[in-house]
């Protein structure tokens, strides 16, 4: 190959690369704008506060109140996070500070496989195990009657799916706490646990919160597994053993059937936009915090 063709090839490839970079950087904006464009119709039809806070959901009558879906999403996410928090924190501390290297080597594939299992499989597991368990045991224990398909089932399944995701970030964060700091606290007479409690957790507090922030945004958008166990009944749930209907499930269940009604179509696109905004905002705040913390070390 002579110099000219090499040079030309290089320039062509550079052009391609430049195009790629532009496209990728623009992609979130493209997605956001296309969703905004599609939800324009509904935004002109109803006010934002009506969309967000009204509980009346009658698509055929042109009334679109997203409140029941938002409440369901918030509850499912909240339950998922609450349940996953202790397991993630305790495991991350144990694997970083107490376990041997062999244990970590054994646990890493376990965590990876948990992370790799598709959400539809978690959904099947939820239907097989969690839903009946709630219907038969958990709900009666609290004095409720439930089919098992409920906010609680969605939360539990979600919490299991969140474990590998949050755990990996937490382990990363704990690793950035400097050994010197640990030594300093120990040599003042603190035990390992006291050091973790008073120094490590305090030092990495912002990082821990961010890890759960990322988990939250993950949980908020999880669709299929939750949809399969949550019941999908429109209405503001009164207790956790009642069925709910989170935003992603709403979109997934109605898409395709709504095409004939432009307003319904637009409403669902608005739901997708809402989902994206919430998720991206939490994502950005959490990532910024983590990046900031890492730059300090």
């Amino acid at each position: 190959m002579n110099y000219k063709t090499r040079k030309l090839k290089d320039q062509l490839v550079s052009l391609w690369i430049r195009f790629m970079v532009l496209l990728v950087v623009a992609l979130p904006l493209i997605i956001a704008f296309s969703l905004l464009y599609k939800s324009w119709l509904i935004l002109g039809h109803s006010s934002l506060s009506e969309l967000l806070f009204s509980s009346v959901w009658r698509p055929l009558a042109g009334e679109f109140g997203f409140f029941p879906f938002i409440v369901s999403s918030v509850w499912v996410t909240f339950i998922g996070l609450i349940l996953t928090t202790p397991i993630c924190l305790f495991s991350a501390i144990f694997l970083t500070y107490y376990g041997s290297r062999h244990l970590l080597r054994f646990m890493q594939p376990v965590i990876d496989i948990l992370a790799g299992i598709p959400s539809v499989i978690y959904g099947v597991w939820g239907i097989l195990v969690i839903v009946p368990a709630i219907g038969k045991y958990l709900a009666p224990m609290f004095g409720y009657e439930s089919s098992g398909f409920s906010i609680m089932a969605g939360g539990i399944v979600l919490s299991v799916m969140l474990i590998p995701f949050i755990l990996n970030i937490l382990i990363e964060i704990f690793r950035t706490v400097h050994q010197d700091l640990f030594d300093a606290s120990l040599s003042l007479g603190a035990s390992k646990w006291q050091t973790i409690k008073h120094v490590v957790l305090r030092k990495s507090f912002a990082g821990i919160v961010s890890a759960f922030g990322l988990g939250l945004s993950r949980a908020f958008g999880e669709t299929i597994a939750v949809l399969m166990v949550v019941g999908n009944v429109v209405g503001v749930p009164e207790n956790l053993f009642q069925p709910g209907y989170p935003l992603p499930a709403l979109i997934a269940n109605n898409y395709g059937e709504m095409l004939s009604i432009p307003m319904f179509d637009s409403a669902l696109m608005f739901a997708a936009l809402l989902l994206m905004v919430v998720v991206v905002v939490f994502n950005i705040i959490s990532r910024r915090t983590i990046i900031y913390l890492e730059s300090k070390h």
Binding site: V21, V24, V25, L27, P28, I31, S34, L35, K38, L214, S217, R218, F220, G221, E222, T223, P248, I251, A252, Y255, L268, M269, A272, L275, M276, V279, V280, N283, I284, R287, I291
Partner: peptide, 28 residues
Amino acid sequence: NRIRFVLDILWGIPSIVYGAFGFTLMIY
């Protein structure tokens, strides 16, 4: 770093939103 940041955001967007976007794109 800016590209990595955008990628992280893309990474965090739920697949249902990609689905909705894909559908829009498809029609377009």
